[in-house]
């Protein structure tokens, strides 16, 4: 995802000289090309995230379309008040690009895990929150971000994620992508777990369960009609995210279901309210928290078979 983002932004920035990228001293084997090809549209602000977000606001006021790049906790949490006061409050044209969704930096520990970012970013007025599910969605989202005026948070995985939905053609911020239809249940997935949703859908099909998959790449504004439709047409909704179960996609979907009085079986799959004491690879932590395709498929079977 990271490589696709940088490649797409370079293409866009060659056309639009107002695009300006600031990194918080990160980007080894990722940002070198941007730095070398577009030196007048690039700044390494050092390991100074608060100053970096403040400067981003100033650069936006000077007329630039600013992209701020760092690992998610350092792009969103360290400088949170700068994002609120300087970027969202003033409604400035700054895109915050966070790499390392969920457990992408699993073995580096909880300082580097990104499990609260969707929750806090979507609570800010004027902020649009986009969490692409695969590199193709990253490409479309990056292009759309250039045209979008105002603050945006773009949540990226790391490197090496596969294209999950190669048929994607129409991408619009705020419009969910129906990856596949199904009548027994619908998985609404976001960000780097879209792949596991699609794989769980395949496993369920083999087991005789017709499961739809929706890529909810935009968490804010969320696609209400896609959620309502899925709730009316399928028997169960399961949300899937590599993020805390508090405040992220699952919460956003639950808000829509509750306020529309939709009676549908519902389950949030994500990371529970804890810091893992024993850690491992991203795969290891996904399995620890029931987020592997097999575990997701099993949970969905359990949800469907539960009596009301």
């Amino acid at each position: 995802m990271r490589k696709t983002f940088v490649k797409t932004l370079i293409e866009e920035a060659k056309q639009d000289r107002d695009i300006f990228l600031i990194t918080g001293d990160l980007g080894f084997m990722a940002l070198e090309e941007f730095r070398d090809v577009l030196p007048n549209q690039y700044l390494n602000a050092g390991v100074s995230e608060q100053n970096m977000l403040g400067m981003a606001a100033g650069l936006a006021l000077s007329g630039k379309k600013v992209y701020v790049y760092s690992i998610i906790p350092f792009a969103t949490m360290r400088p949170f008040e700068y994002v609120k006061d300087d970027i969202c409050y003033q409604n400035l044209n700054v895109k915050i690009v966070g790499v390392g969704a969920g457990f992408s930096y699993s073995l580096y520990g909880s300082t580097h895990h990104a499990l609260e970012d969707i929750s806090i970013m979507r609570s800010l007025p004027n902020m649009t929150v986009v969490c692409p599910g695969d590199p193709l969605e990253v490409k479309f989202a990056t292009k759309a971000s250039v045209k979008h005026k105002g603050p945006m948070y773009l949540r990226l995985g790391k490197a090496g994620e596969p294209v999950v939905n190669p048929r994607l053609k129409n991408f619009k911020i705020g419009k969910a992508v129906i990856v596949q239809n199904g009548k027994d249940a619908t998985i609404i997935a976001t960000s780097n777990l879209l792949q596991n949703a699609v794989e769980a859908g395949k496993l369920l099909k083999e087991q005789g369960v017709d499961c739809g998959v929706i890529s909810m790449h935009t968490i804010k504004p969320i696609d209400q009609s896609a959620i309502i439709e899925a709730a009316k047409e399928t028997k169960a909704i399961v949300t899937l995210e590599e993020h805390s179960v508090i405040g992220g996609l699952g919460s956003a979907v639950a808000e829509i279901l509750a306020e529309n009085n939709l009676k549908v079986k519902f389950k949030r799959l994500g990371v529970p309210d804890e810091y893992p004491h024993v850690i491992g690879s991203q795969r290891y932590l996904r399995e620890k928290y029931g987020l592997s395709p097999q575990q997701v498929a099993q949970t969905i079977r359990n949800v469907i078979s539960k009596r009301n």
């Binding site: 906790p73 350092f74 360290r78 930096y105 073995l107 580096y108 520990g109 909880s110 300082t111 580097h112 004491h277 024993v278 850690i279 491992g280 290891y284």
Partner: peptide
Amino acid sequence: GTTLAGHPVLNAQPGIESSTGS
């Protein structure tokens, strides 16, 4: 399955006095 992460975690093992990394 380790407790020794890529950044120190308080009490992950004896002698580690603070969680740092950011």
